[in-house]
Nucleic acid binder design. Structure first.
Lengths: 257, 257
DNA sequence: CGCGGATAGATTGTCGACAATATGACATCT
DNA sequence: AGATGTCATATTGTCGACAATCTATCCGCG
């Protein structure tokens, strides 16, 4: 790992590389949004042609987007049979959280070792913004802040492959949180206080305590999630034909132009 | 996860789903092989057109294959700049093994809980075949058996997302093992005895001991790997033009037909 | 009346051509 | 001479058409 001049500059100015976005990224974003918010129901079959004409792009970027979402686990891709929105079964929740517990332990350990003061203040900032969102009763915003906080922990760990694994979980967790917050309006949980405490424990370099905290935090989140979670939204049966002719257009946020 | 009749049958007969292979899978296999065995050097720029005409396919499957390899971490993909074979820096080894330690602990724990007797005998079989390979001084075969053993542990865990994470590591580990075995001819290490012992500990449902064993096993493997590992094969500089006109053809195992 | 095989339709996989973009060399200006 | 702006070239991103494959329906048969 040779450190170049541009690397040094980038670090000194705390600049982050600009993401080169192509069409498939844009398509993936819209599809992810539709799946996570529930406009696309579990079990629904996503056809390349449908999406491509709804979004006014060719099938290639749609295809690439499907592959991305497949890696994130939001859709299941089977040869010659296209993409199917995966469900939120109790087993899925269990899988995601058992894996997350393993990954996030490593992330916290590394983050403590590698966090700069800027990292810590960014974490503090995110944690501090959650109570407002809770007070405003914004389920979406609350879930977003929650996920972004943990995302920042992973980024602070500076472990590219670990972050890739987290990417496979992130969308699911957001989906879980969002559906729960929407179903259960008093979503203002203890989560944000635990976030704030975790940051301070990390700042104090108390690795043992931080590991125990993240374990308890995730276990609590998992427990709250499965409580009153009786296999909701498994719409595998009613994925019938859409009503309007281009029903997808509105579901994907409008394809004007 | 509703259990269907076909699921039950599949489990009863211990049948595994037949993989639908498409062209991009085939292309990915050849490229992976070329990278892992070192025919494609780190830093080398893989051009879609080059590969596609060397393999006599269009660019689409090559493109998909690049994406797959990108997810496995064997190549780095940057917008409009194609795929570049990644190196084997000491930091990569450290990343892979620190992550692997976390993942495989979970895998072993789950595998102990979920292993059937068929699973265990398959594990015993694989472990028992390693000494032969070592005696025959077959570096390639030895590395393959090693990876396949651990792969089977992950499969036994029956945790799809965990297995996906392992997929991102497997090729790297194979690459590490292979280069080490080739460089260091007395590769016959203690590995296979530890494999055999691990299986028996798992069979005895001694979770605590098994976790300690896998931890020690991986730590040992990591130590053996970085010993005498002075940033080898970082051919970023000498990735000059190829000799023959279609030099890729032979590197990819012959594109006759 | 249930079962197996052929067939039609729909959907994905692959292809080659074109458009968009990044890169590096070159010319120009200070 | 050094830096900056411009342009040609190579390479990837996107597109629409065609081929291969799967699914579901229908028909004949036991």
């Amino acid at each position: 790992m040779t450190s170049t001049v541009s690397d040094d500059f980038r670090e000194a100015a705390a600049l982050t590389a600009v993401p080169h976005r192509v069409l498939s990224d844009e398509v993936a974003d819209r599809l992810r949004e539709a799946i996570v918010t529930g406009r696309f129901k579990p079990g629904q079959h996503l056809r390349e042609a449908e999406i491509s004409q709804a979004l006014q792009v060719s099938r290639s970027p749609v295809r690439d987007a499907f592959a991305q979402l497949g890696h994130e686990g939001l859709v299941a891709i089977r040869s010659h049979r296209g993409a199917i929105v995966v469900g939120l079964t109790a087993q899925d929740v269990e899988e995601v959280y058992s894996l997350r517990a393993s990954l996030e332990s490593l992330a916290v350990r590394l983050a403590i070792a590698r966090a700069t003061s800027e990292d810590l203040s960014r974490l503090r900032d995110l944690a501090s913004r959650m109570p407002e969102a809770a007070a405003r009763l914004s389920p979406r915003e609350y879930a977003e802040l929650d996920v972004r906080f943990h995302d920042l922990v992973y980024q602070t760990a500076r472990h590219d492959r670990l972050y890739s694994c987290w990417t496979m979980l992130r969308s699911h967790i957001f989906r879980f949180l969002l559906t729960r917050n929407l179903v259960n309006p008093d979503f203002s949980e203890v989560g944000h206080r635990e976030h704030a405490e975790l940051v301070e424990t990390m700042a104090a370099h108390d690795t043992e305590r931080a590991l125990e905290m993240i374990r308890a935090h995730l276990e609590g989140a998992y427990a709250r999630l499965i409580k009153g979670y009786v296999e909701p939204l498994d719409h595998r049966a009613d994925a019938g034909p859409r009503g309007s002719e281009d029903g997808l257009t509105e579901e994907l946020g409008g394809g004007r132009e």
